[in-house]
Design a protein around this nucleic acid. Structure first.
Lengths: 237, 237
DNA sequence: CGTAAAATTGATATTTCTCAATGAGAGTGG
DNA sequence: CCACTCTCATTGAGAAATATCAATTTTACG
């Protein structure tokens, strides 16, 4: 594989006009704290499919996702893959429990992150309970989402899985200000399958069925939720 | 259903000789802080199957589990249930992200908890970054476990699910000092099924198969891991 | 002991997977 | 600008895993 990491150019856009700040952990920082944190962060770009960090690898950095979509996943020894989540701008990644990353993360499309070296980042957080609380909330939110995903994986049919995925993905994009008539799906069918605990064929068939039933319209690079109400009913929690 | 909550008697055993303290969030507290926290906690007992808190309910309390096993689960509107975890002594429960509980929790067998009113507990945590960090670690650990469970639910066969469950359950019991030749299974087959995303019949058949294959021996109220190595191989992460 | 709940077992149905083939777009080099 | 090729997505047919429905056995409990 080609080299995929693009070295960060000198920061031309500092935290001050960071688009994701209100949604990121940084939102709780004061101006001067922000400038301090800015020193610690390094902006990096990744090409589509480039790995950002890997399961089992010693966790030396954590990341704010600034632009693009990432997939977070675990692999079994025989290669089976479970995607445990997709990260969107504003998400904070790389928290580890035993010094090693529990999951792998790579770029779906082009990605820009703000990287922090864990050591200095931890020191920064240490005297700022505000920030620690904020990080805590982020982790708690991730846990809540993980629990919802367990219900999906363990107890729902293929059709419910796909409908739920589409509705929740649309809602997440809307929250980060990316609402459009068409819901873009930057990830592949295989990614969706590995996220929902299905095969690519079942995902494809389910998309087709939902389109036949006029719940969605499959368009290039995404879908249109033609009958959002019906999709939401299928996704009902 | 009968009333199941037994009012806490005046604390006869204060934090000082709390058996779970080293494994609980309280481990990071100094003697005097501990005495302070003690004021805030209330010891409560629950009968088997008694609910402790419920999904969607406004989250006013959080809990240290002191004795017994709890099941944590989510229900779908049509009654399908996914158990997202079993709690053991030392676990901290009731963290909520939006003021309401995201999950339900009830006692599997008899349970004793240490309950804290969220409001006063939060105030206590506020000036103790140590404790906040500890809670953070607990949530991060839960998240890591949830991610592992997603792999199990999405990508593993019934046999792998059951074997993994048994091995990990044994390991958890061992960690909390409950290691024995026989691994007790206080939860029902239905609980196990709802934890693994299977039906009760499939769980039962899989137990039988594992016994025929001499991987386990089914004994009253639990199992013996007759061939731990083989079980661990099936569970290999 | 007798009854109810839990667990097991069996027969069949259903869902989803697997394997195989085809089709559609995107990028490339002539 | 057009084949060519590669990857990704879709579709089909048949297989496999697990669910469902039903019966029976075992265990728990009054």
């Amino acid at each position: 594989m080609k080299k995929v990491v693009v070295a960060g150019q000198p920061d031309t856009r500092p935290c001050a006009d960071c688009a994701v700040r209100p949604h990121a952990i940084c939102a709780v920082l004061e101006q001067d704290e922000l400038r301090r944190l800015e020193q610690l962060g390094q902006r990096l770009q990744y090409r589509p499919n480039a790995p950002v960090f890997t399961q089992e690898e010693i966790a030396t950095s954590c990341y704010n996702l600034l632009e693009g979509v990432m997939r977070l996943y675990k692999l079994l020894p025989d290669g089976r893959r479970q995607i445990v989540g997709f990260a969107l701008p504003g998400d904070f990644l790389g928290i580890s429990v035993n010094g090693r990353h529990g999951i792998s993360a790579d770029a779906v499309g082009p990605v820009v992150v703000c990287r922090f070296v864990k050591k200095s980042f931890s020191r920064f957080v240490e005297d700022r309970p505000n920030l620690l609380r904020r990080i805590n909330e982020f982790v708690a939110r991730d846990l809540t989402e993980a629990q919802a995903q367990m219900v999906l994986l363990g107890r729902r049919s293929a059709e419910e899985k796909v409908a739920t995925f589409l509705v929740k993905w649309r809602d997440r994009l809307a929250q980060t200000g990316l609402a459009t008539a068409i819901t873009p799906l930057p990830m592949s069918r295989l990614d969706i399958a590995d996220y929902l605990g299905l095969t690519i064929e079942t995902v494809s068939r389910t998309f087709t069925k939902l389109e036949r039933d006029e719940v969605i319209e499959i368009v290039h690079g995404g879908i249109r939720l033609a009958d959002a109400a019906r999709a939401e009913a299928m996704a009902a929690a």
